[in-house]
Structures are given as structure tokens and as C-alpha cells.
Amino acid sequence: MDIPRDLKYTKTHEWIKRDGTRIRIGITEYAQKELSDVVFVELPKLGQDVLQGRAACVVESVKAASDIYSPLSGKVVAVNKDLELDPALVNKDPYGRGWIFDISLSKQEEINSLLDANQYDTLIHQKA
């Protein structure tokens, strides 16, 4: 299972890539496999405020609709419009072209609550 070392993770299988106060968010390789074929991503609205641990958007497969929880609090500053045309990017390239949204971080200290790659690896192996 691909778990890039340079990313942070949540227990709910989102990944976080940090660039200063700008945070990019997507779902992990493990999550996309569990979801199976993604058919639709209901993106958050630009400018929307999101709270850590609260649902920010929805990823749908044929038989399930799964909430994506925002790993951190902040304001949505970008959404991946490509997913509107090709939701399968979430399956094909979860850490790259399948990113979902960017936020500008509002609570610096929340970063500390995230998992690193090792911790996330342990988590999903416990699950399996």
C-alpha cells in the first residue's frame, strides 16, 4: 500500500500536504480501494469554512456515499474541478491528480493531531 512519507494522515483516511498555511487534502490509496470506483465527488464550495473532523464533502461510489472529513480547520481556497469531469482520478491517482480541495489553515496547532506515515501505516494494518 502506497503511503507517501512526506504527507500527514487522519484516522478517517484523508491525506494532508502542507505548503505554508495552504493545505491540500485528498483521500488515501487505502480509502479509494475501500470505496471502489468513485462515480461522483460533491466538492465543497469555494470560500466555505470547514472545521477539523467535520464533513466537508462527499465521495460517491455506485452503492455508497462517504463523507470526507476536513483534517484541519480553515477556509476552502481551491477545489479540484477536474473531478467533475473525471471522478475516477481519485482512484487512479489519489495522491496526485485526485486531490480534492485546498484550505488556508486557520488553527496552526491542529497540525499536531495528525498522524505521520508510520502511524497511519500501523492504523491500516490493524484494520486489515
Binding site: 470506483d37 462515480v39 461522483f40 460517491e60 455506485v62 471522478p87 475516477a88
Partner: peptide, 8 residues
């Protein structure tokens, strides 16, 4: 039937 195609 391809339900993924239908929904995508």
C-alpha cells in the same frame, strides 16, 4: 451491467 459507467 456496468453500473459505474451509468453513474459516472
Amino acid at each position: 451491467c456496468d453500473e459505474v459507467l451509468a453513474a459516472r
